[in-house]
């Protein structure tokens, strides 16, 4: 009995984890199918585009510019140890575009958008607004989930692209203003070193991270518990799940694009 109790606990946890993975997967597939099938809600889609894309620009821009600047300083300081200070433009570019741009934008979207989606939908659930939608012949997956997921898949790659550019610009400002690089040389080195797969991987990561962020917000919101505590728990769980899945997906995508 003493020996089987921990095993039973492990078994229960494993089954619960598998069940959750199954539910999330089915939810994500359902979201995709509702994106493709009418009716469509263009007004809700437009609002989601604004909320996820436009209103995230300031936070994405500020995150990227400070990260790009700090990255330039770190590479310069580290590079000095083996006389490789000159690689600052190239490493800032590759670091921002391949990794830091998509990951930081993904995490900022998880913090800003996933939490907001989860809290909004969870509140709708506990105040019976989702039941009201159903009685008004409106499918909650179509009205709430599909527009948000589609908007995130479209706007997050754009945000990543903008974040990449602003991050590189942050590195440029520090490189030319503080580290003594010539502006023309800095831009030329950045441009020469970046390749198409770097940019493509960045944008693909953005689309995947956007999908994860929106699906996690919607899933946890729709499955929220009762009351204020339920809304709080749904919001927290959505951000945790989105952040972890974004980092895991980043590893898999990096492996897929660059392991060879």
């Amino acid at each position: 009995m003493i020996l089987t109790t921990p095993l039973a606990a492990i078994g229960r946890s494993t089954l619960a984890l598998l069940a959750t993975i199954g539910r999330v997967t089915l939810f994500a597939l359902s979201a995709l199918s509702h994106i493709l099938r009418p009716p469509f809600y263009p007004r809700e889609f437009g609002t989601a585009l604004l909320n996820i894309g436009w209103f995230s620009l300031p936070v994405v821009g500020l995150t990227a510019i400070f990260t790009g600047g700090a990255l330039a300083l770190q590479i310069y300081a580290g590079g000095q140890r083996f006389s490789a200070e000159a690689v600052v433009p190239q490493i800032v570019a590759i670091g921002m575009v391949r990794e830091l741009g998509p990951v930081l934008v993904g995490l900022m979207i998880a913090a800003r958008v996933t939490s907001s989606i989860a809290a909004e939908i969870a509140t709708m659930k506990v105040t019976e607004q989702i039941d009201a939608l159903v009685t008004l012949s409106t499918h909650p997956m179509k009205y709430l989930t599909a527009p948000r997921v589609l908007a995130a898949v479209i706007t997050v790659p754009v945000l990543v692209g903008i974040g990449d550019i602003i991050g590189i610009w942050g590195g440029f400002l520090v490189g030319t203003g503080q580290l003594g690089f010539a502006p023309g040389t800095y831009i030329q080195n950045t441009w020469d070193f970046l390749e198409t797969p770097d940019v493509v991987s960045s944008l693909v990561k953005g689309a995947v991270f956007g999908f994860i962020a929106a699906v996690m917000g919607c899933y946890h919101g729709m499955n929220s518990g009762r009351g204020a505590q339920g809304v709080g728990r749904a919001t927290k769980s959505s951000v945790e799940a989105a952040a972890i899945l974004i980092l895991a997906a980043n590893f898999l995508l990096t492996n897929m694009f660059f392991s060879s």
Binding site: T123, M124, T127, E128, Q129, D131, A132
Partner: peptide, 8 residues
């Protein structure tokens, strides 16, 4: 609905 369930 009991609480109105109006869409905020």
């Amino acid at each position: 609905f009991q609480g109105g369930a109006l869409f905020d």
